[in-house]
Design a protein around this nucleic acid. Sequence first.
DNA 1: TATTGTTATACTCTATAACTATA
DNA 2: TATAGTTATAGAGTATAACAATA
Lengths: 152, 152
Amino acid sequence: MSSPDRSTRPVVRAHDDVLGYLLKHAHFALEERTDAALAPFGITSRDLGALRVIAGGGARSQQDLAGVLGVDRTSMVALLDILERAGVLARRPSEQDRRRNVVELTDTGRELFFQAERAALTVEQDFTSALGANGASELRGALRAMLAATAH
Amino acid sequence: MSSPDRSTRPVVRAHDDVLGYLLKHAHFALEERTDAALAPFGITSRDLGALRVIAGGGARSQQDLAGVLGVDRTSMVALLDILERAGVLARRPSEQDRRRNVVELTDTGRELFFQAERAALTVEQDFTSALGANGASELRGALRAMLAATAH
DNA sequence: TATTGTTATACTCTATAACTATA
DNA sequence: TATAGTTATAGAGTATAACAATA
């Protein structure tokens, strides 16, 4: 009845109504905690992402790996340098195409990966504990659905 | 019976099982689309975030504003410089404390904000359209709940 | 002496271009 | 000629330190 403008033109949105804000800060908070949990292992959450792809056999070369991780191939070099120097992984030229580097985890690297992954998983579970039993998987499902629907 | 390891030590997770990956890419995709939709207005999604806080009256000084947005006060200067030069907002010394700058939207700035916000909202709605009627608000609720529970 | 806004500087991260070795 | 890895360089973004005005 009065103030029809209230419903026509909404008031300024609060921060936590803005999806971009929520996604950004949720990601930031989770990454912060994950990095803290991974610090004892001497790796970051980004390193763990690379190790996960390598461990899963999802990349046949450094360039593949860079593509999957969404980083430049030149950035990949330094990232692998550090992990190789730490004895976590090893590079060797591919036998099919000697221009390519096959990247593999060392034995200690594989062990490190599984321990670090377990630590990261614990952080995730703690992070989503407020969502209840099904909430976490529903959240993942929603995010997956959005990404799938908007993939160009 | 065979391969009990399969259930004890899970196989390497797929990318889209990792919450951090999902949050990061969802945020990135949304920001990309929002920035594209805001380009005709000459602002970015970060600018819009600042305009939203200013329009909502949620900051009493540049430092306040920087704090709310989670950026450094020195980074705030350049951001406001651009928007002020564009005639979107104006700075004036506070009457209570002349060290502080009160930041306010100009008339054209307020109009720009509402139009840009409407465009951003359309992008959000399109982005979450795969989630159905309640899905989007459930997603926001889940993200809000996580952030609230993990706020230190 | 402490604080706000500002500037100058340094540092990090990433992207671009050029080089090598292989194909 | 084209591609994979590497290196060197430059650019954007951000943080750190120092300065002027005000409290």
